[in-house]
Design a protein around this nucleic acid. Structure first.
Lengths: 132, 132
DNA sequence: CAGTATCCTGCTTGATACTG
DNA sequence: CAGTATCAAGCAGGATACTG
């Protein structure tokens, strides 16, 4: 059911007088362009996670970048942040419905990445070997 | 002992020879994270374009960034670059099969962006209005 | 545990000028 | 037409230390 759209991009966007900053495509891509956003969303799609659990689930993310990225995703309405008033505190992050629908939309790309990553690496080697 | 590797620092990762290229998801996302890659791929999915036509099709892209982005996409095997030995020269860019399959994998995300961009903007306004 | 605060580096991008 | 070359600015991101 998510199949019909598509051709909406260039002609229509320019015809409607949108600037590049108002372009939904660029805005969403920019949101996912961070180094960690997609990995965090994928981790949360499996189950809600606490802060520390997310750190372990997303290897190599720094505390600082995890905090910042989570706040951006929360701001965009993609996940909820729930503070449990325990001692020590625990904070649980979970996808909203909007976030879940985004993950579904990203999944085809993830699958593509897995299937074709080898081809990309091969293309890079050929390109570089050609000495350009 | 099985969870030891979770806390590697970036320095240690580099020292061990690992790069971002070793994670397919991050590598592909990084490739699309440029400010222009997706828009260029979408333009080329409509039809092959010459350099100047691409500049017009992707508003606000600078000559420099278009050159660089096209080169990266070519290097990854996503598009072909064909020089026609005319005077003045003309260069045509077209998607490879790999590039076409990537566009198909990105299309659901494009559709999602169109449908939910308003919700994201609304969430941002609420979040900012809450004074955080 | 779940963050802040601070400092610092390098990459990405833009502007501008030049070329085959 | 389709690029290259060079310079400069801004921001993303990392390391480290501190806190309620």
């Amino acid at each position: 059911m998510k199949d019909a759209p598509a051709r909406r991009t260039l002609a229509e966007i320019r015809a409607s007088g949108m600037t590049i900053e108002d372009c939904p495509i660029r805005d969403v891509i920019a949101g996912l362009s961070g180094k960690w956003s997609v990995l965090i969303l994928l981790a949360l799609e499996e189950a809600p996670h606490r802060f520390g659990a997310l750190r372990r689930a997303v290897p190599d993310v720094s505390q600082r970048m995890l905090t910042i990225t989570l706040r951006d995703l929360q701001r965009d309405g993609l996940l909820t942040r729930t503070v449990h008033p325990t001692v020590p505190p625990s904070v649980e992050y979970a996808l909203t419905e909007l976030g879940q629908s985004l993950v579904q939309a990203v999944l085809p790309l993830i699958g593509w990445a897995d299937r074709h990553h080898g081809a990309i690496r091969g293309a890079r080697r050929s390109f570089d070997a050609a000495g350009l």
